[in-house]
Design a protein around this nucleic acid. Sequence first.
DNA 1: TTGATATCATTTGCATACGAATGAATTTCC
DNA 2: GGAAATTCATTCGTATGCAAATGATATCAA
Lengths: 153, 153
Amino acid sequence: MSGEDNLLKLVEVEEPEEQDYLLQEQVGFILRKAHQRHVSIFAAHIGDLTPPQFAALAKLRDVGETSQNQLGTLIAMDAATVKGVIDRLKARGLVELSKHEVDKRRLLVNLTAEGRDAIERLIPLAREITRETLAPLSAKEIATFMKLLAKLA
Amino acid sequence: MSGEDNLLKLVEVEEPEEQDYLLQEQVGFILRKAHQRHVSIFAAHIGDLTPPQFAALAKLRDVGETSQNQLGTLIAMDAATVKGVIDRLKARGLVELSKHEVDKRRLLVNLTAEGRDAIERLIPLAREITRETLAPLSAKEIATFMKLLAKLA
DNA sequence: TTGATATCATTTGCATACGAATGAATTTCC
DNA sequence: GGAAATTCATTCGTATGCAAATGATATCAA
C-alpha cells in the first residue's frame, strides 16, 4: 500500500512536465512575423518589384557590374535563388548580362539605363518603407533595435 | 543675375542627391538575414521538419483540435500556405483531419498520437534553437531585443 | 424567408529559398 | 605540367508565402 502510494506520488511529482513552451514568444516565430510585416509594407509601396529584386538593383547601383555569384553573396542569396531573381530582372530589361572575358565561368550583371532610372526612382520609396517598418519604435528604440538585430544577422 | 545666382545656388545645394542609401543598413534587409540565420540554425537541429511545420504542431499541442483556418491565424499563415503545411503533416501521419459536424465548411485538424510524441520530443530541441539564435546577445540584450521585436511584429 | 454578405477551404500562378547534383572553367599544389 | 580541389553557374525537387479566383456553406438583414 505505502509502496503503491509512493509510486503514485512519484508519478504525480514528475508529471508537471507541461513546462510552457510558447510558440508566440520564440524569436524565430516573431522574426518570421516581423519579416512578413515588412514585406507587406514593401508591397504596399512598391507593387511591381519584390524586396529581393529591389535588393539586387540597389546593390548593383552600389557596386556596379559584378558576377551573378558575387551579387548573390552581397545580397545574401544562394546561387539558385539569385539566378531566378536576375532572370526576372533581365526579362524586364532592368539588368543586362554579359560574359566575363577572362574568366569564362562568370556571368556579369549590370544595370541597364532603365534599371538605373528605376532604382533611383525607387530609393525614396524604400526610405519610406524603412521608416514605416520602424514606425512602432521611438528614435532611441530604433537605434537599439538595429544594433541588436545586426548582431543576430 | 542675382536671380540666376540664387537658382544656381539652389540647385547646387540640393544636388548632393547621392544621399547614401545603404541596403545593408535597412531593417528589411537585416530582418531577412536574421530570419535566414534562424532557419539555418533550426535546420541544423531539426532536420526533418520545417519551422512552419513545427509551428503547426506546437500550436496544435497548445490549443487542441481547431479548424485549418483558425490554425493558420494562430501561426500567421494564410489559408493557401497552411493547407500545404497541413497536407504534408497529414501525409506523415502527424496530424489527422476530420469534418466539423455542425459547420460543414470547416476542416478540423488535430495531432495524432505520433504527432503528439513528435512535438513533445522536439520541444527541447526548439528551446536550444531559440537559445542558439539569441546566443550573440547578452541576457539583458535579449530582453530588450525581444521587447522591441515584438513591437515590430 | 430569401437575397446579400461573409467565412472556410481549395486551386492556380508566381516568387523566393535552399539542398543536392551536374558540368564547365579555373586555381592549387605536388 | 597535370591531377585534385575549388569556383561559377545551372537545373531539379521540395517547401514556404501570398494574391486572386472559385465553390460551398453560414450568417445577416430587409
